[in-house]
Design a protein around this nucleic acid. Sequence first.
DNA 1: CGGTATCCCAATGGATACTG
DNA 2: CAGTATCCATTGGGATACCG
Lengths: 118, 118
Amino acid sequence: MIGAMMNKQRSRRTPPPQDCPLDVCLRLLAGAWTPKVLWYLCDEPRRFGDLRRDIGTITSKVLTTRLREMEELGVVAREVIPSSPPQVSYSLTQLGKELKPVLDAMTQVGEKLGRKIE
Amino acid sequence: MIGAMMNKQRSRRTPPPQDCPLDVCLRLLAGAWTPKVLWYLCDEPRRFGDLRRDIGTITSKVLTTRLREMEELGVVAREVIPSSPPQVSYSLTQLGKELKPVLDAMTQVGEKLGRKIE
DNA sequence: CGGTATCCCAATGGATACTG
DNA sequence: CAGTATCCATTGGGATACCG
């Protein structure tokens, strides 16, 4: 079963192939909610539930997914604080903080783009 | 096109809800191939077919889609040169050129992210 | 040359329920 | 509190064919 399923059929869905650095960064930022997670982590570390409430309508499944992939890329750090009830705190790493200027730059252009919309 | 996208009925609940400038910029850049199109238009105007060949494996359907939405946002300009065979030239507008620093910033962070991957 | 028109698939992520 | 586990609707965009 696994063998069969691992047989990647490359016929369709030839993905944007190169892993140039731009694509890498984009794949991170384009994940749903990712910019908002970064935004709320910018100022200070936050716990899972706080993040969830801050962002508003994100489900815990998706929030978990995003945090896990950000963690794997070294953009956020996860710290478990043994206590009862359990607490898990998320914060930006040094690398994560380097995304701030990117978000700011995108916001600036976004404002000009935005005037074209509505 | 993105404008239409923004009025579209949301399926189940209100997903990525706010249209903050960051989201607007991101929706543009996250379109498949969009960064590459921008990249190849950076230096000089290019014709449709040239862009297609530059990028390599993009289909004309998708290239058209991307160029149309970039045009609607005022990021690229489309110029039809009456001749035989017909020529259509695409170039970055002033606003489009402002995306260059954004791409550069993303590339820089992407390089550091990339070292985490492979 | 510079596109449209179809058809269709697989990944993304939303809804909901449940757990240590 | 901080997640997992399922299930499934939406959709971006790839393949292919065709056109003025």
